[in-house]
Amino acid sequence: MQVTMTVNGKEVTRDVEPRLLLVHFIRDELGLTGTHWGCDTSNCGACVLWMDGEPVKSCTVLTPMAAGREIRTVEDLEQDGVLDPIQQGFVSQHGLQCGFCTPGMMMTCRHLLDHNPDPSEHEIRVAISGQICRCTGYENIVRSVRWAAEHTTSEEVSA
């Protein structure tokens, strides 16, 4: 069946099987491999992207369910060569080692900061509680999000 959706501001149309999972559509049909394919069971959160402005686990969405919706992936965080504060936070606070969970973590945390610009450590830990990181022990991810909360202008971010 033919599906049309908006991905990172651009309209895309593809002919897909209805059973195709959104994570595979994004990665394999559109080549946007920033969204990672992890546990396949909606536990790990590596595949988190935004659908109509809300973080969702794209391994548990069928592609036709996203038709007509607005999808935002990790590739859209960087704008005109400038990293989003959440990306710069992960860089400066060493919020990743292997990087597998990072795209999903950043999409969830960008959404958190958009709705709660000054989150407590507890609020950050709750927000990412459905996502698994096996490298950092979460400590540096929390620091990365706090860094992003404290550095919001592009001058601060790139300084």
Binding site: S42, G45, V48, E54, P55, V56, K57, T60, V61, T108, V126, A127, S129, G130, Q131
Partner: peptide, 9 residues
Amino acid sequence: IADPVVRNR
């Protein structure tokens, strides 16, 4: 119930 991202859906 589940986790925050799952609760969104």
